[in-house]
């Protein structure tokens, strides 16, 4: 399969909202997220001829690159920001629905690993197999951990509803 500009444009339109949403949720910084989005795509285009599926789709690969870019950005800025509800997603003032607030609260009770799972599953909308590839984990492990995270979230939601 060859990828031309039109196809890439379509791919951008399909993937970028998820990828950007994911990056904003991770970095909690829209401008940084934009930079990371750009660098992710650039690296992807450069490395596209070398891309090997190995069981995961292109979006999964893109998210793997994005995760790596985030890590490098954190390393450069020498910070590992803790989850702070006050600051979290401050660049998204429109996310003030009841559900959004509830989810933000219940996510704060999860570990960073579990939050990453939730992001990849529900923001990036990736299948479990692709998440497993991105996180270098077993399919079953991902499934179990996601299940536990959801159970934990559910119990929190039930307690605070």
């Amino acid at each position: 399969m060859n990828l031309d500009r039109d196809a890439l444009s379509k791919l951008w339109d399909e993937t970028t909202p998820k990828l950007f949403g994911y990056l904003v949720n991770v970095t909690r910084d829209k401008s940084l997220a934009e930079d990371l989005l750009q660098s992710t795509w650039l690296k992807a285009i450069e490395a596209m001829p070398k891309f090997k599926s190995r069981g995961a789709g292109f979006p999964a690969w893109l998210f793997a690159i994005a995760r790596n870019e985030c890590r490098q950005a954190w390393r450069k800025s020498n910070r590992e920001a803790a989850f702070d509800l006050e600051q979290h997603d401050k660049a998204a003032p429109d996310n003030n629905s009841e559900n959004q607030i509830l989810v933000d609260q219940l996510l704060s009770n999860l570990s960073e690993d579990d939050r990453e799972l939730i992001r990849l599953r529900y923001i990036a909308d990736l299948p479990i197999n692709d998440i497993a590839r991105i996180l270098n984990l077993n399919f079953v492990t991902v499934r179990v951990r996601l299940h536990r995270a959801l159970v934990q979230a559910k119990s929190y939601a039930a307690k605070h509803s």
Binding site: P17, F20, G21, E34, Y122, I123, L150
Partner: peptide
């Protein structure tokens, strides 16, 4: 319900950059 909530949440988080 938790799926719906998270799915809605995830959908809400998706956005294009400015």
């Amino acid at each position: 319900n938790i799926h719906n909530i998270l799915t809605d949440w995830g959908r809400g988080k998706r956005r294009s950059p400015a």
